[in-house]
């Protein structure tokens, strides 16, 4: 069946109808992306400060050490935020799809193929999360001059 257009219609309709439930997912994705973008940008500032310390200080090894440590800490915060965010998004996604078991059952009884149903749910989750993440990166980068 040539139902590609209906696939996007139905999936985007699903996001619109479920926007209240997708909101926590979107907020976490946006916050994760914002923290990650912010930490990334701040790491650049910290690196610059470390470079200045190396130039001015007498104890070169200590300066380089501190710079290396500070750089690593920035990286750890960044990675930690990403991991927590990704796990949270996956967890909430799974919880949300469980609440849609009824809807999946209805689609199944009407005659939707299993593959179509799975692709619809995946598309809804990933497209909403991606949009929220992009918004988060923009917000995170925009917040940098303020902090």
């Amino acid at each position: 069946m040539n139902n590609r257009r209906f696939f996007y219609e139905n999936a985007l309709g699903g996001i619109r109808r479920m926007r209240g439930r997708y909101l926590p997912l979107g907020i976490i994705a946006a916050l994760t992306a914002a923290c990650s973008a912010f930490a990334d940008a701040k790491r650049g500032v910290i690196n610059d400060m470390s470079a200045m310390l190396i130039e001015d200080s007498v104890d070169l090894y200590r300066q380089v050490s501190e710079a290396g440590t500070v750089k690593r800490i920035g990286g750890y915060i960044n990675a930690g935020a990403l991991i927590i965010g990704v796990i949270s998004v996956i967890f909430i996604s799974l919880l949300m799809q469980r609440t849609r078991i009824y809807e999946v059952g209805v689609y199944y009884s009407i005659g939707f193929r299993r593959n179509f149903i799975i692709r619809t749910l995946l598309f809804e989750t990933f497209s909403f999360t991606a949009a929220a993440s992009i918004a988060g990166v923009i917000l995170g980068s925009a917040a940098l001059p303020c902090l």
């Binding site: 069946m1 139902n3 109808r17 009407i110």
Partner: peptide, 16 residues
């Protein structure tokens, strides 16, 4: 979460 129209429309949409 779908109106009566949207519910009835589903099989037609899927059929293309």
């Amino acid at each position: 979460t779908m109106t009566a129209f949207e519910n009835v429309e589903l099989p037609l949409g899927y059929a293309g």
